[in-house]
Design a protein around this nucleic acid. Structure first.
Length: 571
DNA sequence: GCCGTTTTCGGCCCGACTGTTTTCAGTCG
């Protein structure tokens, strides 16, 4: 199998880590890390770029040297620089450096003085009390490491929807401490990432210590990690970390930018400030000691020669160049959505009748909704066979006669069988307005077979949309092994569309794949997969991810009026 | 190792907090 972008990025990250521990030029390790980020965010595989004769050194952060190294990795599947570093610094120093409170410098010290090469070595050193003999280590460090070693849990990320529930309650608790009640959750939460690692809360005010006290006494707090005059960090019962920062009005915008990130976006902006001999930090934009902007984000972006970049785009994926040129996309909003194209009823595994779903969709201001119950193969969901689907079609026709200003489109979420055939015969599919095809079993096919399976399903001209194209369930099930670049290209070639499933447990396509679809000219359906009327409200989570993938209304088929939508559905 | 509207060398984001020091290095975000 060709080398994946993620593997190359992983090699570069490991290289950076070991270079840091070794004490090499810190900018060299930063270059490796930068390159890793660039590579993992590419909408296309490095392998295919090389095949197409692209010059990798054209990519930002990748010069002649790294371009050559990447080519060598693709050819040999090995990275000699990394292998040499691993021989010099044997053991798993990366997992040691991942512990809280241990960075490259201290890992090196542990390695040099105590020959610590693994978590096990470290555990023994902590137990024997040798650790506190080292310069820079004391009783506290020993205690903290003992605690971290006792529960070596991987960094937990929370689904956006979970984080939202926590955030709303927390903000309500904090609001009385804020000037004008101004409290906002920034960070990846504000950027609407599909998962959130912590909550970065920004509060307008003057008394950071008092606000920190209020946070520290929040019912759900189990641990106060840090508590200073302007910043407080706590851990909630759920494991979610909360950082609170209190800032005055003059620097509110700067702090909001700083706390919203992403880190790489901020670094790039600070670079722009540097170019002008200015300094950007969380207090403002400064020319010498003079603050030239800071109260609002808009003002700071403006001074830097940029239009205001929406939080969802702040990932340093090219948005800064667009903002400088004044060519930022006009991102889609929930208000642009005119219908939902993936909805279930109690004919299969939904909870309410078709008419009830239709009424709820209409109440949301939609003009249409596609009813897409499961097909026969998904027996556990009472999937419909051709006979039941035929009766359902008749029922929808009757329902549409009664509905005023709203249309229920006749559809089906048809299983894609292991060989790529569909679970229902063409004869019945031809009576539908749209077919949403989806993989529901055999998730473990090899990459090539899985990819061909989905592409083959799109060969059927009745198929309008591929639902939840990678099958992931966030935090529960990884995406199946599939070549999304190939799937996107095949969809483009066939005039097929891809779903962005808005269920917060799925969010599939993810932001990267959504953007790749946009680049390839493949239009997206943002659909909730609702199994109840309440599920229709998940649309906004889908729109969030669409915005992260830079989609505009024109990129989304369910932002179209129904007449134009119908034309696109017929291939 | 990358990069360039003060360019091919000499820069590379910036500050808070902690723990361990006795003025600061390291880590973190």
């Amino acid at each position: 199998m060709p080398v994946q972008n993620a593997e190359i990025a992983g090699m570069f990250d490991q290289t950076a880590e070991l270079l840091e521990i070794k004490g090499d030029n810190p900018f060299r390790s930063r270059a490796y890390r930068n390159a890793a980020r660039v590579i993992e965010r590419l909408p296309k595989s490095i392998t295919s770029l090389l095949k197409a004769g692209e010059d990798l050194s054209e990519l930002p952060g990748i010069g002649k040297d790294l371009a050559g190294k990447i080519a060598a990795i693709v050819a040999t599947k090995h990275f000699d620089v990394l292998e040499k570093l691993k021989r010099e610094l044997p053991g798993d120093l990366g997992e040691i450096a991942a512990l809280p409170g241990l960075g490259p410098k201290r890992v090196k010290l542990l390695y040099d003085k105590l020959r610590i090469r693994s978590l096990e070595d470290l555990r023994r050193a902590v137990k024997s009390g040798r650790l506190r003999e080292l310069r820079g280590f004391g009783v506290k460090s020993e205690e903290k490491l003992a605690a971290a070693l006792a529960k070596p849990q991987a960094e937990k990320r929370f689904k956006l929807s979970q984080a939202e529930a926590e955030a709303e309650a927390l903000v309500n608790h904090l609001r009385p401490s804020a000037s004008d009640g101004q409290v906002i959750v920034a960070g990846s939460y504000r950027r609407r990432r599909d998962t959130v690692g912590d909550l970065d809360v920004l509060m307008l005010g003057r008394d950071g210590a008092a606000a920190g006290d209020r946070l520290a006494t929040y019912d759900d707090v189990v641990n106060v990690v840090a508590h200073g005059p302007t910043r407080t960090t706590v851990i909630l019962r759920s494991g979610l970390q909360v950082d609170l920062r209190v800032v005055p009005k003059v620097s509110y915008g700067a702090a909001l930018m700083y706390f919203t990130g992403s880190k790489s976006h901020n670094i790039a902006l600070r670079g722009l400030a540097n170019d002008r001999k200015w300094k950007l930090n969380e207090y403002g934009l400064f020319a010498g000691k003079r603050r030239i902007a800071g109260a609002s984000e808009q003002e700071i972006y403006g001074k830097l020669g940029l239009s205001m970049i929406p939080p969802e785009m702040r990932e340093d994926r090219g948005e800064i160049a667009l903002a400088r040129a004044g060519h930022l996309p006009k991102l889609i909003t929930v208000a642009d959505i005119r219908g939902d194209l993936h909805v279930h009823s109690n004919w299969s595994d939904g909870t309410v009748p078709i008419a009830e779903m239709a009424a709820a969709a209409k109440a949301r201001g939609y003009a249409y909704m596609a009813l897409t119950d499961h097909s026969q193969h998904t027996t556990i969901a009472h999937g419909l066979d051709a006979g039941r689907l035929s009766r359902q079609i008749d029922e929808i026709d009757r329902l549409n006669d009664e509905l005023d200003g709203f249309t229920v489109l006749k559809g089906s979420e048809v299983d894609i069988l292991a060989d790529g055939r569909l679970d229902l015969p063409d004869k019945i599919l031809s009576r539908l307005d749209l077919v949403v095809a989806a993989v529901h079993q055999k998730f473990d096919l090899p990459r090539k077979a899985q990819t061909e399976r989905i592409v083959h399903a799109m060969d059927n001209l009745h198929v309008s949309i591929i639902a939840h194209p990678t099958g992931r369930l966030i935090g529960e099930r990884d995406p199946y092994d599939v070549d999304m670049e190939a799937v996107i290209a095949a969809a483009g070639a066939r005039g097929c569309h891809l779903e962005l499933n808005a269920d917060p447990d799925r969010l599939d396509l993810n932001d990267i794949n959504v953007h790749a679809a946009k680049v390839a000219g493949v239009k997206v359906a943002i659909s909730t997969d609702a199994h109840s009327t309440g599920g229709l409200a998940n649309m906004r989570f889908g729109v969030d991810q669409a915005r992260r993938g830079w989609l505009e209304a024109a990129d989304v088929i369910n932002a179209l009026p129904i007449a134009r939508l119908r034309k696109l559905l017929k291939r």
